[in-house]
Measured scan of single mutants.
Amino acid sequence: NLFVALYDFVASGDNTLSITKGEKLRVLGYNHNGEWCEAQTKNGQGWVPSNYITPVN
C-alpha cells in the first residue's frame, strides 16, 4: 500500500511520525475510527492523520 503525503505533518509525540508533502510512505494499518494510520517511511514508523495522505496511482 503505497501512499504519498498531501501536507507536511510535524510529529507531536513519541508514537507519531513527521512527514513532508510529496513524501512516499507505506500504510501498515488504521486506528478504530480511521482518523489515524500507522505509516512507515525511510525515516521511521508512526501514526499520521489519514486525511494527510492519498494512495499513489
Rank of each mutant, 00 (worst) to 15 (best):
1 N>G: 15
2 L>G: 04
3 F>Q: 09
3 F>E: 03
3 F>G: 04
3 F>A: 05
3 F>Y: 03
3 F>V: 07
4 V>Y: 06
4 V>K: 13
5 A>V: 06
5 A>L: 00
5 A>C: 12
5 A>I: 01
6 L>F: 04
6 L>W: 02
7 Y>M: 08
7 Y>N: 12
7 Y>I: 14
8 D>A: 10
8 D>E: 07
9 F>S: 04
9 F>R: 07
9 F>V: 13
9 F>Q: 07
10 V>R: 11
10 V>D: 03
10 V>N: 14
11 A>E: 08
11 A>I: 02
11 A>D: 10
11 A>F: 04
12 S>D: 12
13 G>I: 15
13 G>P: 04
13 G>M: 08
14 D>K: 07
14 D>W: 05
14 D>I: 06
15 N>Y: 04
15 N>Q: 13
15 N>W: 11
16 T>W: 06
16 T>C: 01
16 T>D: 01
17 L>Y: 14
17 L>Q: 04
17 L>M: 14
17 L>G: 00
18 S>M: 12
18 S>H: 11
18 S>F: 13
19 I>Y: 00
19 I>A: 02
19 I>T: 04
20 T>K: 04
20 T>I: 15
20 T>Q: 15
20 T>P: 01
21 K>H: 15
21 K>F: 02
21 K>G: 04
21 K>S: 05
22 G>C: 05
22 G>D: 15
22 G>S: 06
23 E>W: 01
24 K>A: 02
24 K>R: 12
24 K>I: 06
24 K>G: 08
25 L>W: 00
25 L>S: 00
25 L>C: 11
25 L>P: 01
26 R>G: 08
27 V>I: 10
27 V>G: 04
27 V>D: 01
27 V>W: 05
27 V>H: 03
27 V>A: 08
28 L>W: 05
28 L>Q: 07
28 L>A: 08
28 L>C: 11
28 L>G: 04
29 G>N: 09
29 G>V: 06
29 G>K: 13
29 G>M: 11
29 G>L: 08
29 G>R: 09
30 Y>S: 14
30 Y>I: 06
31 N>Q: 09
31 N>T: 13
31 N>S: 13
32 H>P: 14
32 H>N: 05
33 N>K: 15
33 N>H: 13
34 G>K: 14
34 G>H: 13
34 G>C: 07
34 G>N: 15
34 G>S: 11
34 G>V: 06
35 E>I: 15
36 W>F: 13
36 W>P: 00
38 E>P: 01
38 E>G: 03
38 E>R: 06
38 E>H: 09
39 A>T: 12
39 A>Q: 00
39 A>G: 13
40 Q>W: 09
40 Q>Y: 15
40 Q>D: 04
40 Q>G: 06
41 T>G: 14
41 T>S: 15
41 T>N: 05
42 K>I: 10
42 K>F: 05
42 K>Y: 13
42 K>G: 14
42 K>A: 11
43 N>K: 14
43 N>F: 02
43 N>W: 08
44 G>H: 01
44 G>S: 10
45 Q>D: 07
47 W>L: 13
48 V>F: 04
48 V>W: 00
48 V>K: 00
49 P>F: 00
49 P>R: 11
50 S>L: 10
50 S>E: 05
50 S>Q: 15
50 S>C: 15
51 N>E: 12
51 N>Q: 03
51 N>I: 06
52 Y>W: 07
52 Y>R: 11
52 Y>I: 06
52 Y>V: 12
52 Y>T: 15
53 I>D: 00
53 I>M: 06
53 I>S: 00
54 T>Y: 09
54 T>A: 10
54 T>H: 12
55 P>N: 14
55 P>V: 11
55 P>C: 10
55 P>W: 02
55 P>E: 10
55 P>M: 13
55 P>H: 09
56 V>T: 13
57 N>D: 10
57 N>I: 03
57 N>Q: 15
57 N>R: 08
57 N>T: 05
